[in-house]
């Protein structure tokens, strides 16, 4: 109990600091009274988008690690991340044409990419469920997810090469691919907040099943868990969470893999305690990395996904070493 208070106290304190830092850091000058409110609003939106995306990815990470009892699983393994990324890329490619043709006249132009990403995630999810239909073997899911991801990545690379015809479009597609939360608006925050609340609520509802599922399919099944249904819905919610994250923040690497590992030693492995803590920690991690992108370079924007990867990979190795020393393995 004491440990729980300490964890939440630390998380909330650090999150407060990260949010404050995020509001304080930026290219605009807060001394300019006429623009101060605007700058703060922009930074608040960006912070909310980053926090939501980080939380989504971290919760999705916990889901897949439990569903596949694989500590190396990240949300990307079910293919939804790659699908959402491809959807966003295609929306960027086709978006200019759609806007010019007035097809998207009723739609806020800034919503084209998120909508493309969500469509991509849903497409990836449907394809995955169609491929593994009827099979209860996690290996099939992992293989199908891997194949779909590879396919989407190849098509995405082709889209990127097509975009090179227009130099700015090529930059934009690449920038989306590498992740970032600059210039996000209320629409983006609404998307990620919806995905997060739905995904987190669903994950909390499935939490007891996920706990039992850590003992493997057979034991969980005899203890009363509907393994196939749990896994199917777990995959769906993972897709919703990671699709929502990609829709507002592009492809942000490593969050879903590392945050659950970093939090388990403090929150434990039981999902009702783990999930909320992981959500806050994921948000905290991405907001901190986003502040870092703003501090490192004001002009040549450092992609968020690169920073999360640069910080995430060494941190992951550190955690891995630590857990080896403790002789523990976190499923």
């Amino acid at each position: 109990m004491k440990r729980t208070y300490a964890l939440w106290g630390t998380l909330l304190l650090l999150s407060g600091a990260a949010v404050a830092g995020s509001l304080y850091t930026g290219a605009g000058d807060l001394g300019d009274e006429s623009l101060r409110a605007t700058f703060l609003r922009l930074r608040a939106l960006r912070t909310a988008a980053g926090f939501g995306a980080g939380a989504c990815l971290a919760v999705a990470g916990v889901l897949v690690q439990a569903l596949f009892r694989n500590p190396l699983a990240g949300p990307s393994i079910v293919g939804a991340t790659a699908g959402a990324t491809l959807g966003g890329q295609l929306a960027l490619l086709g978006g200019q044409g759609l806007i010019a043709a007035g097809v998207a006249a009723r739609l806020a132009p800034e919503m084209l990419v998120p909508i493309g990403a969500i469509a991509g995630a849903l497409f990836a999810l449907s394809a995955l469920l169609l491929i593994v239909r009827g099979s209860n073997d996690p290996t099939h899911v992992l293989l199908a997810g891997f194949l779909l991801s590879s396919l989407f990545l190849s098509i995405g690379a082709f889209a990127l090469s097509l975009a090179q015809d227009t130099w700015e479009l090529g930059r934009a597609v690449l920038s989306f691919t590498l992740g970032g939360v600059s210039g996000r608006g209320p629409g983006h925050v609404a998307i990620v907040a919806t995905a997060l609340s739905a995904g987190l609520a669903a994950a909390m509802l499935w939490a007891p099943s996920l706990d039992v599922l850590l003992s493997g399919d057979d034991e969980a099944s005899t203890l009363g868990v509907d393994v196939a249904t749990t896994r199917r819905w777990g995959i769906v919610w993972t897709a919703v969470l990671s699709g929502g994250a990609v829709a507002v923040a592009g492809n942000v690497a490593f969050v879903g893999l590392i945050v659950p590992h970093a939090i388990r030693p403090f929150a434990g492995v039981m999902h009702r305690r783990l999930l909320p803590a992981v959500a806050v920690a994921g948000g905290l991690f991405v907001v901190t990395c986003d502040v870092a992108t703003r501090l490192i370079s004001v002009k040549a924007n450092m992609p968020l996904g690169v920073i999360t990867g640069l910080i995430g990979a060494p941190l992951f190795l550190l955690l891995l070493r630590r857990s080896q020393l403790l002789g523990e393995s976190h499923g």
Partner: peptide, 18 residues
């Protein structure tokens, strides 16, 4: 058991109540 997680014993036993 296929359980490879550092789950506290009491929580493991409580899974019986699922």
């Amino acid at each position: 058991s296929a359980l490879r997680t550092a789950m506290p014993v009491r929580d493991v036993v409580a899974a019986g109540l699922f």
